[in-house]
Amino acid sequence: MDLLPFFQWCYDTPVGDAIRNSNWLFAIIEAFHLVGLGILGGAVLIVDLRLLGVGLRKQPVAQLWAATQPWLLGSVILLFVSGIPLFLSEAIKCLYSFPFWVKMTSLLLVLLFTFTVRRRVVQTGAASERPLAGRLTAIISLSLWFGVAWGGRWIGYS
């Protein structure tokens, strides 16, 4: 499948063009992306650390999950809203960037994992009955998010 025409189209969008032609836009959008990253980190970590048996361990994991869910969703939205314009501005570079594909693959996997397996483990209390299942869930979640973070950071070095 030839992806170049689609990536070229992305690159040529008015948004991509505007960001490339501005001194400031890329930097400002990137800073919002970082703030989103931090909030996402808090929302993910508080649940995954709890699954690993540390942090707010007196609270039921389902309660932590429910309380952080709006912040998780909100930060994911902020990350998409800021990340897509950044991508548009350098779509051609991304097409040939190995870290970009690591990031996109990890992102797809972690979003699927978070809203299927992890959600079930956390909500059904499987974590408290079988701590190993909870730990494994946390390790998979953190590893996949790290794939996203590694790829994301390394796009800038490629």
Partner: peptide, 24 residues
Amino acid sequence: HVWTLCLFFGTVALVDLRLLGWIM
């Protein structure tokens, strides 16, 4: 430095949101 932002700012934000009464 950037990755640790998730741990540092993420947990700062959680504590601050609790202080504001917006979470848990």
